[in-house]
Structures are given as structure tokens and as C-alpha cells.
């Protein structure tokens, strides 16, 4: 799975949770709070993405996330690890 495919999953989750953002282009450099998401929205986006990607990232690492790109870094790594272990 490419980084772009992971990004598409995350974007779909953002649009699902924060419907007011539908139609707005989301960039990797965006910050979810700046986009108008509250703390509960972010928890939903993260969990929904992990569920869809069938990955688990420790919450301790997720607390470091600032921009969308940070989230993608973590998810991309977890997807790659999973694909290595379970080809």
C-alpha cells in the first residue's frame, strides 16, 4: 500500500467525521485542529483509519502527532511492518 493510498483512507475518515470539511482539499501539511476538528473528532479519525487499514499504532506514539503528515508517517510504517510480517 502506497503513502497516497494511506492518505486517501485518512482523508475519507476526516470527511466522514467532520462533514463540514467535505469538498475542501486536505494537504499533508494541514493540522487537524486548525481545520476545525475537536479532540473527539481526532480520536475518531485516528481509530477509524487504523481499523480500515487493519493496523495498530501505540497511543503513546500517536500523542506526538501534529500535522496530517505525522499521522501518515506512523500509519505508513505500521502498514509496511504488517505487510512484511503478513505478506
Amino acid at each position: 500500500m502506497t503513502r497516497n493510498e494511506v492518505f486517501e483512507v485518512v482523508k475519507a475518515q476526516i470527511y466522514r467525521v467532520a462533514s463540514h470539511l467535505r469538498g475542501k482539499e486536505i494537504q499533508e501539511t494541514d493540522n487537524l485542529t486548525d481545520l476545525g476538528a475537536d479532540s473527539l473528532d481526532i480520536v475518531e479519525v485516528v481509530s477509524g483509519s487504523m481499523k480500515q487499514l487493519n493496523i495498530k499504532v501505540p497511543r503513546t506514539r500517536l500523542s506526538m502527532v501534529d500535522e496530517v503528515s505525522d499521522l501518515l508517517d506512523l500509519f505508513e510504517e505500521a502498514v509496511a511492518t504488517k505487510q512484511t510480517v503478513q505478506p
Binding site: L40, V43, S47
Partner: peptide, 10 residues
């Protein structure tokens, strides 16, 4: 356990 509803706590 990872996949419980993320908003369950609320």
C-alpha cells in the same frame, strides 16, 4: 481491544 468505539469513553 484496539477497535472498540473510539468515543466509548464519552
Amino acid at each position: 481491544p484496539e477497535f472498540i468505539d473510539p468515543l466509548y469513553g464519552v
